[in-house]
Write a protein that binds this DNA or RNA. Sequence first.
DNA 1: GAAAAAACTTAATCCCGGTTAAGAAATGAT
DNA 2: ATCATTTCTTAACCGGGATTAAGTTTTTTC
Lengths: 208, 208
Amino acid sequence: MIFYYPKVMPALTELFDHMSRFVPVSAEDKQVLTDLVEVRSVRKKEHLLSPGEICHANYFVKKGCLRMYFIKDNGLEHTLQFALENWWITDFMSLENRKPTNMYLQAVEPAEVVVLTKTNMDILSGQVPQMERYLRLIAERAFAASLFRMQYFFELSVESRYEQFNRRFPEFVQRIPQYMLAGFLGFTPEVLSKIRSKKRAGARKKLG
Amino acid sequence: MIFYYPKVMPALTELFDHMSRFVPVSAEDKQVLTDLVEVRSVRKKEHLLSPGEICHANYFVKKGCLRMYFIKDNGLEHTLQFALENWWITDFMSLENRKPTNMYLQAVEPAEVVVLTKTNMDILSGQVPQMERYLRLIAERAFAASLFRMQYFFELSVESRYEQFNRRFPEFVQRIPQYMLAGFLGFTPEVLSKIRSKKRAGARKKLG
DNA sequence: GAAAAAACTTAATCCCGGTTAAGAAATGAT
DNA sequence: ATCATTTCTTAACCGGGATTAAGTTTTTTC
């Protein structure tokens, strides 16, 4: 069995590293965790969850990018969350209440994820107190981030929302299609296009 | 000491009842909890937290109603969260990172709250695993609720947001001033006034 | 119960961002 | 390399909701 050790363990290094930022993680903890999760790769645009289904797992992104979105009656998509490397993503509403979701969970880029099912999440957090704490802290952070985003919607115009986001996450803006960013920030692709062309005009003027 | 027992314990019944809905709570757990929190009453409009301060506690509402809000440059208030009976409320961003908040935490009605400081929250969740789990589940729920609200903002007009909210929480709408509701739903008091008068006109027509 | 403060209403005006539509550019598939 | 799909752009038009301002009603306070 020691034979497989170097093969299995490295698959979860990102997760262990991330956990270590919040709680102490022992070797036993790692072993228990390893036994209860699986790693899986997701192709670009592949869906891990679609409306009508029940969400059974929480996903930790090792590599790539996932998003959770829904489609309005007018056909526009709105992304509620993105998950880059080292983020967890799931639909808690569906996961906790075992009710059908109305969300899509999709890979924006080819991704590697750690899958932790609801069942194993409960087992794990019972057996490993540090995992429970880790999950609590993550959830509290996610909640705080969500309220912060809410505040942005209340107080900023569409244009400054884009500017702020661009300033804070310039590399991320490059990674995703513009229409997804527009939907995430709460407006239409056309408006984003308008903003960008205005910016370009401003930049040209500056240069001379 | 048994002398004080009936006096101290009843103060936390609401909290224990609420916890029991999520996790099993033993008598010892209750005792530990009792030793680490305090109950305090808050006058109407009193602030438990103001911008610039660091948030040191998480508050459980036994009775009454709290809200967390901020003020925009144009002077309008936006409530990010209300907390009715059996809800927890805090600014996690400030609490976890020990950074100054930009929020007000205020009693909308005279309230009784259970105060759990950050320090005691850490002690408690270390000593009482069930408390840790309870707090995790609460945080996950709050996060889910926040995303759900976000979805409402994306897909519904101002008017239907009001209708939906009114349909879901009719008794709560009666409890708070209209301008707070407007701010919570993301618009101005004037717009809410217009909607309501339109509704009244519709109702009159129906009656004949 | 009178005065002050807080909350709500009404209406006119304005502007940000949505909608529509058609074309251009970039990306992906075979 | 070519065709198809996806993504982005541009521009004209429109409308929901913000802003402003003044007046009314309700609640609080002493």
